[in-house]
Design a protein around this nucleic acid. Sequence first.
DNA 1: TATTAGCACTCTCATAGAACGAGTGCTAAC
DNA 2: GTTAGCACTCGTTCTATGAGAGTGCTAATA
Lengths: 345, 345
Amino acid sequence: MLTNRQLLILQVTVDDFIDTAQPVGSRQISKKEEVPYSPATIRNEMADLEDMGYLEKTHTSSGRVPSEKGYRYYVDNMLTPQRISKDEIKQIRSVFEERMVETEQIIRKSANILSELTNYTSILLGLDVLKHRVKRFSIVPLSEDSAVAIIVTDSGHVENRVFSIPESYNSSDIERMVNLLNDSLIGVPLHEVPMKLEAVTSTLLKQRVGHFNNLLSSLNKAMTIEHKDKLYYGGKMQLLNQPEFNDLEKARSIMYMIDHVNQIPSIFALDKKGIQIRIGSENNHLAMEDCSVITASYGIGDEQMGSIAIIGPTRMDYKRVVSLLDVMSTDLSRELSRILRGHHG
Amino acid sequence: MLTNRQLLILQVTVDDFIDTAQPVGSRQISKKEEVPYSPATIRNEMADLEDMGYLEKTHTSSGRVPSEKGYRYYVDNMLTPQRISKDEIKQIRSVFEERMVETEQIIRKSANILSELTNYTSILLGLDVLKHRVKRFSIVPLSEDSAVAIIVTDSGHVENRVFSIPESYNSSDIERMVNLLNDSLIGVPLHEVPMKLEAVTSTLLKQRVGHFNNLLSSLNKAMTIEHKDKLYYGGKMQLLNQPEFNDLEKARSIMYMIDHVNQIPSIFALDKKGIQIRIGSENNHLAMEDCSVITASYGIGDEQMGSIAIIGPTRMDYKRVVSLLDVMSTDLSRELSRILRGHHG
DNA sequence: TATTAGCACTCTCATAGAACGAGTGCTAAC
DNA sequence: GTTAGCACTCGTTCTATGAGAGTGCTAATA
């Protein structure tokens, strides 16, 4: 258990390091108003904090730097939410003022604003398209042997696939199949579409209507909707401005990682609601050892629709980012609800 | 005019520098089999080549490095096409073997293979969607006041836009408008769609059918199709492996540039056919001063459909890249013709 | 007893100089 | 016309040195 004085010193140390990116020494802390102790006292306390694992030294006679455990403690116990200035709130809200209808645009712009306000890289995981429901299904023939299948969802999203038409089908066959499928598919969430197609096929078989078999299976093959999450980046290069990534090798692996976040399942913690913070190695990824990720999710009511991630150095300004994410995710949820309720209604 | 010996020495110098990335000295050249002269002779010739502006020194007592003029001369006069190995041709052709139907996939995969084979960054400018022609136009209502307009082109590409429906229109109005527009729009290239919509509006006005006015103008506003070229990247990070970009500042500006190539009009020289090489400052872009870009275009017959760019250091392996691009663009043209002819037919 | 001043010690970083090596330019010999 | 020889230049690497920042410990102090 930490004494009050240790708490104070830990907090001041972390704050200072977040601010300056330099190891902080006892003298420096002692100069602060809120700390009425001499450097010597502080040295003793810092030594204790180091023994307990909250602080680290980069070398024998450097100042101290927060350890992961230190950051974790700081984040868990010392995060007083920061006031977001009126101007900044205004900037966030500006996304919604134009009353854009396309959710994609809104999300894209949100990503940019977030990275501008934080100076870190932001990644927004778009609306989970797979949860949207089929509003209309149609097929447009392109040639003798190919056609494009189009699904419009209730959110206005359009999914389309080219597939090949087996011989022996003509356009009236296709038309009949579209009618058939439209009846069965409307209202079905995208991720259930392949299942539903299977179901239709087997029903037809039971009814001894084998006619559409080949056509359906070709369509089905094309229709499998892979879970390709749409990611929207803001300030991809921002991280390179952080002093901790001045090393070329590190910079490279960071950039590579950012371009492949979708392959790191742990980044977007979709399982939990609210704001989450993962510090350094908690990300379970080598290239992210010096990064922290703060995620928040947005959605309508209990239904989660997507999430926001801010990636910065472990030394990131947690207070500020958490507060900003709070505002942004709330606003985003509200606005998207407004738009989608419209469509659903 | 260069003597034969100067020609030889220039060529060997450029080749060697391309290979090693180190300034090349007279002794080093003299050691090569094809050069039967002593270092002293070579020194004299190199001094002359430097006077003429083909070579440069990085400092007084370094070896020589090709100047831009040197590269230009090399590229214009000494580019003996290089034989591409069977394995590599096989690798290029592998893109087409799976008989993929979606052109987008083909292009995406081509970009990756090119960057693998060259170790440079490749960017493919996709089929110019705007030239495709409307095959089918339809509108799917989403809610009381919004709908999504969908255009399917003859190539299987699907373009879609959400737009808002002014009050006082009901679904049968929309249906009628779709029928009306389908007649006028089919066969029209995408970039002429907005024009065509205007035309329809004014025709209707002349016929004193003002009924659809508002609806049409709302649709038209949404339908403006910006010329957003689709770019497909291969090996974005490859350039960072080149020793000339070991400097963080340079690396950063290169990466930034690559992410914003679409804002550099000169990169894709769509005006000319065949293979083009732009060296260093010929790119007219500060961040590209140390880069060369080799572009090739592909298309059906005389109609250009897109182009390929390879971005590497000025010290790039021109011979190899040119030969690879030659193979790739030919194959790509042929394959895309095959697919699109199918659709058009 | 808790705090603080003092001091020796450690480690990094920046700077300067020396040794080294690669390469040139010039001159004189072949 | 070509080449060997040699003085010279410049960048790189290594080492030494000193300044500066910060620590840990001990002894003095409130």
